[in-house]
Design a binder for these strands. Sequence first.
DNA 1: TATGCATGTTCGAATTATCTGAAGTTGTTG
DNA 2: CAACAACTTCAGATAATTCGAACATGCATA
Lengths: 303, 303
Amino acid sequence: MHTAITIDALKVLDAIDRKGSFAGAAGELFRVPSAISYTVQKLEEDLNIAIYDRSGHRATLTPAGRYLLEEGRTLLEAAENLAHTTKQVAQGWETRLRIGFNTLLPAECLFPAIRAFYDLGVPVEVQIIEEVFAGSWDALQSRRVDLIVGADQLSKPAGTFTTKALGKMNFVYAVAPDHPLAAATQPLAEEDIARYPAAVAADTSRSLPPGHAGIFRRQPTITVANIDQKIAVQQAGLGVGWLPESRIRSQLREGQLIALDVHDVRQPIMLHLARHAEDQGKALMWFWKTLSQSEELTSWLET
Amino acid sequence: MHTAITIDALKVLDAIDRKGSFAGAAGELFRVPSAISYTVQKLEEDLNIAIYDRSGHRATLTPAGRYLLEEGRTLLEAAENLAHTTKQVAQGWETRLRIGFNTLLPAECLFPAIRAFYDLGVPVEVQIIEEVFAGSWDALQSRRVDLIVGADQLSKPAGTFTTKALGKMNFVYAVAPDHPLAAATQPLAEEDIARYPAAVAADTSRSLPPGHAGIFRRQPTITVANIDQKIAVQQAGLGVGWLPESRIRSQLREGQLIALDVHDVRQPIMLHLARHAEDQGKALMWFWKTLSQSEELTSWLET
DNA sequence: TATGCATGTTCGAATTATCTGAAGTTGTTG
DNA sequence: CAACAACTTCAGATAATTCGAACATGCATA
């Protein structure tokens, strides 16, 4: 049960090639030439192949030896990287960080931070997961995610969490320009609104029954998975409802959606960063600090 | 100058995880438990990290230990594969095989053979290189390629080569349907032809001056890189000339090109496989045998 | 609660692997 | 031809790894 290839043997092959001789490699590795001879011959014996052609004065690599040298360099580098990255993990870098973000915010608000994080070169896999309504807190509490970007204060569960306010998300009541409500008398009354399907994003919380979105009236609804779909559905005139103002700036400007006055106004929501109070991983704390100061993120909110 | 990670240590970590205990791993590796303890502790000391949490009865992996185990498995597999593939190279498989093919043939005639070759699972990198006219033999002689598919007998150079006939390539004189020559009296005379640009594929031989394609008259030419381009240029009505009949079967059938009778007919060319007589690599001989019997290849030729 | 068994560690000694230094062979260069 | 370089062989020295015995601790069962 013996492994033929060892990291040390590959190092020796590499040094021989770079220095041009067994003697040169011996010098670099602080060994004597016969030790180099021994290592090479042991490798040849264990693999049962000839790595060097010794018919000349100077040993030359066989095709198999050349192949082993070149592929072996890849392995050497991987072994060195693994030692390095393992140490980084031991120093507190998580191997994985899952970031949940409220669908009220666009995924791209996280991209600059993620890009900067990858530039650090630490071995952490970053995952981003979109959540709707109470899904954000639920995901954090049940540890489906490690960090929440855009958690509200309404559905915060029991437990010790650390939060930081990011800014307010405003809402507008938006309809497509050719929707009947676009021509109705403003401010819109509840009975006017109730006549048309509401576009509703389905809560991603796993603790609540499906379809529970704070709607108990008999208004018909179109259920979608996230805010992007809600915007699209309302833009297509299939549904009506509240939308985050910053998310539909261009649609409002270009007339693809129309903001209406409503009798019962939906209040802005303060959105937060949130994490478990006891979590202190280096990647988590890095993102906490970076996203606390992210202009890309706050450009979608009112501070 | 000491490498922390060894292949053996990674094997030990793997066995511990699979067997669920140090004792289990010791059994599998035919060692005693204290030898396992020693290996793990040596690795921890060399990396200067804790791989196992020993606060319980049974040692459990730290996050860094888990990371090392999982990434280390990749390295273990790579090392085993390298030993295997190196042995294959030593047994006569080349690390690389360059196949030159005459542009008169389509690249896809080689694909079934290449696919079958990859199914062998041997560590040989296959490259295909297109050649025009004398470029085929030139590439073989100067060892830019190891095998030629579609070598003619006209430009065969000095040297000891092994050849095998594959079949004949027929030629037709083809023009676009709206080209003036399409309405000319047949068989076309030389003076009729000379009035329009000839489409010419540039010889890829490096031993000849550029532009040397057997044309010494003052007929204007459009020079292209290969037969596919020659077909396209002639189909667009920009040039005229001889084309391999099998390569333009569908164009002739659909009327995108028209075959004309010419006074001076171009004779068919016998195409061959060719290699250096002394080359006997396993991959080379595999392709030699396979392509000798390839129906995909001979479907483009007349046998 | 006591007992038996499993798990992992410590430690000195045994065993194995690797390295060293000296002598030797062969090729290359001035 | 002499000097030097390159690599090998071989016995002995050194270093690394494994072993076996004793030990400490946790867990399951009677």
